[in-house]
Write a protein that binds this DNA or RNA. Structure first.
Lengths: 160, 160
DNA sequence: GCAACATTTAGAATAATTCTAAATATCGAC
DNA sequence: GTCGATATTTAGAATTATTCTAAATGTTGC
């Protein structure tokens, strides 16, 4: 519908404006590639790797290169628009959710889930020793997700 | 002193026995290389990379190979004797402290610090949505360490 | 439009990790 | 203790993830 499209456009305009500002604040320009990479991250919130972002970004922008994807991701991270998350022994992944939140990684299926912080819940007060100045907390929770938790878990043996 | 040496030896025997058991529990053998790699990790608790472990391990065992270091680290991780920690965009690092604890990473000097959990402090109760079954929490704290915190921080510009 | 500078691009280079195949070591059965 | 089965170590090749390079292109301010 015409009305909806216009509304969506307006939303994008607002969004873009924010992106422009955040990039500019760190001395970066707002380019079609950076916008596109960011939109890819927003679309599927499954913490994709740079490789996956590359593949997805090519759909709407077939000529984009891997180097540019890395460049864009770096710029977005520096600008505080996305953050980077690590999985053990895996390629770095990216997350566009900048609200304070935790991450849940399912040991079974490998899925990644954002865990929102309940505003009523007490701040995870982790006392650090004298002299340390914490700026950011990151909580990673390992376990099984609802889908995998219901399956009968065959305890796997350690085999080489 | 003779007495001290004997005591140290006894300690090692106890330690080794635990290592043997933990390895065996996962179907691994207790080998000189695995023992040595583990001892390297215990000696310097600075979360070394595989590469660093390799270099250090070569001192006491000049013929050990990189492949074996990776193999040993894998076996030790699987056996729950060490754990693996990630730093953004850096090689995987290893930590032999298996007591429940957090990690503090200094943004300035890159140093890694283990943050013990105060027993009196309330468990960091991070409520997860229905259906999720957490098995392990990992808390990473970013900030500045006591040494770097005292220096006058020149705010660095974002440059490419 | 021009000069200065940022960005993109393809591909090369580097770094981290995993794989392969042969040699060696260990374990349990006899 | 010898034998066969299996695990481990080793060197080096292969793969994967990331960074670097240099040339082309785009953007900005004058």
């Amino acid at each position: 519908m015409h009305h909806d499209m216009k509304s969506a456009k307006q939303k994008n305009a607002v969004l873009d404006h924010d992106v422009v500002e955040k990039l500019a604040a760190r001395g970066f320009r707002f380019t079609p590639q950076r916008e596109h990479v960011y939109s890819v991250l927003l679309e599927e919130r499954d913490h994709p790797t740079a490789e996956t972002v590359f593949i997805r970004a090519k759909h709407g922008m077939p000529d984009i290169s891997m180097a540019t994807v890395y460049n864009c991701l770096d710029a977005l991270v520096e600008s505080g628009l996305i953050r980077l998350v690590n999985r053990d022994r895996e390629a770095t992944r990216y997350c566009p959710n900048m609200h304070e939140h935790h991450h849940f990684y399912c040991d079974e299926c490998g899925g990644a889930f954002d865990i929102d912080i309940q505003p009523e819940a007490p701040k995870p007060s982790v006392p650090v020793p004298r002299g340390f100045q914490p700026s950011r907390y990151e909580v990673i929770i390992h376990g099984t997700c609802p889908k995998c938790g219901t399956k009968v878990g065959v305890p796997r043996l350690a085999r080489h």
